[in-house]
Simulated assay, not measured.
Amino acid sequence: MQEPLPDGGLVRKLWLGEADAYRDHLLRLDPDSRHRRFSGAVADDVIIKHAATADDLGVVIHGFFVDGVLRGAAELRHFGDMYSRQAEAAFSIEKEWQSHGVGTALLERTLLSARNRGVKSLQMNCLADNRRMQQLAKKFEADLKFDFGSVVGELEAPRFTPLSVMREAVEDAHGMTSAWLDASSRLFKTA
Rank of each mutant, 00 (worst) to 15 (best):
H50T: 08
W97C: 03
A54N: 04
E96P: 04
S178C: 10
V69D: 04
G17M: 05
M133C: 09
M176E: 13
V119S: 03
L181R: 13
L16W: 07
R109T: 02
H50M: 08
R159V: 11
S113C: 09
R117P: 02
S121Y: 09
D45E: 15
L122E: 02
V60P: 00
E88D: 14
G63H: 00
G17Q: 06
G72Q: 02
A183G: 08
R117C: 08
I93H: 03
T110G: 03
M176I: 12
D7N: 09
P31H: 04
P31E: 10
A157I: 12
V66Y: 03
G9C: 02
A19R: 01
T161E: 12
R36M: 12
M133K: 02
E96Q: 10
T53V: 01
V60E: 03
L181M: 13
N125K: 11
A191N: 06
A114S: 07
N116D: 14
P162T: 02
V69K: 05
R77M: 04
S113T: 13
K189E: 13
S99R: 15
N125D: 07
D44M: 10
W15R: 15
V69T: 13
R85M: 05
S184E: 14
H174D: 09
G68V: 10
H25R: 13
Y83N: 12
A90V: 01
V165A: 13
G68R: 10
F188L: 15
G153V: 06
P4W: 02
A137G: 14
F140N: 05
S33C: 06
R12H: 05
A54T: 03
P31S: 11
K13S: 13
E94M: 12
C126R: 05
D147G: 01
Q98D: 06
A43M: 10
R28I: 07
P162E: 02
A74P: 06
F148H: 15
V60C: 08
A74W: 01
L107Q: 04
T161L: 07
L10K: 05
